[in-house]
Design a protein around this nucleic acid. Structure first.
Length: 173
DNA sequence: GGACGTTTCTATG
DNA sequence: CATAGAAACGTCC
């Protein structure tokens, strides 16, 4: 666990069968979730109870851990912690909002997302917004595929995208 | 202004 | 089916 004064965020790593993810919390909720190896994680970091961690964050974290483990197992999380996606731009937040409505095992194309946010021609920008998603897995950017059913891209690494989809029972070309 | 990206469509062989 | 080129547009530098 590590607290940074800057934006008053607290980072706590989450040990999973797939490695250690890193969750970062702000006053309003979960701010980001990093894949194992995506960020520098300090020595030993599971949920080590520390007095400095605010109560809300502890509660949110418990929810995050449960949600992440379920999601990694290809199941729909029962609950999510409050997500603070305020850091994104207008378009990004719209995209992320739509992504959250894609259920387990479902997929959409970048074009469908573009239409869903009322900007039919921003297809490419939608891809950019997916790539900028600060909370992968829980905000399912991996469920967005290219229109031809192909895998498309994934900033967290295509292996992760394939793995997550496969666990949800989604077949990709 | 210029480059780049988790895109998509059309044309062509 | 595969490849090439172009159109499109938000972001970042």
């Amino acid at each position: 666990m590590k607290t940074s004064e800057r934006n008053q965020t607290t980072s706590i790593s989450i040990a999973t069968p797939d490695g250690r993810f890193l969750a970062r919390y702000g006053r309003k909720g979960l701010v980001s979730l990093d894949f194992p190896g995506a960020a520098k994680i300090g020595p030993r970091g599971s949920l080590s109870a520390r007095q400095r961690v605010p109560g809300d964050i502890r509660r949110w974290h418990r929810v995050t851990v449960a949600a992440l483990k379920q999601a990694l197992a290809g199941r729909q999380p029962q609950a999510l912690p409050p997500l603070d996606l305020s850091a994104g731009t207008e378009l990004q937040r719209r995209v992320w909002r739509v992504l959250r409505k894609i259920g387990r095992g479902q997929t959409r194309s970048y074009g469908e997302i573009a239409r869903a946010i009322g900007r039919p021609k921003t297809v490419r920008a939608v891809g950019g917004a997916c790539g900028a998603n600060p909370i992968p897995v829980l905000v399912p950017c991996h469920r967005v595929l290219a229109i031809n059913g192909k895998i498309g891209g994934f900033s967290g690494g295509l292996d992760w995208k394939r793995t997550l989809l496969k666990r949800e029972g989604v077949r990709v070309q």
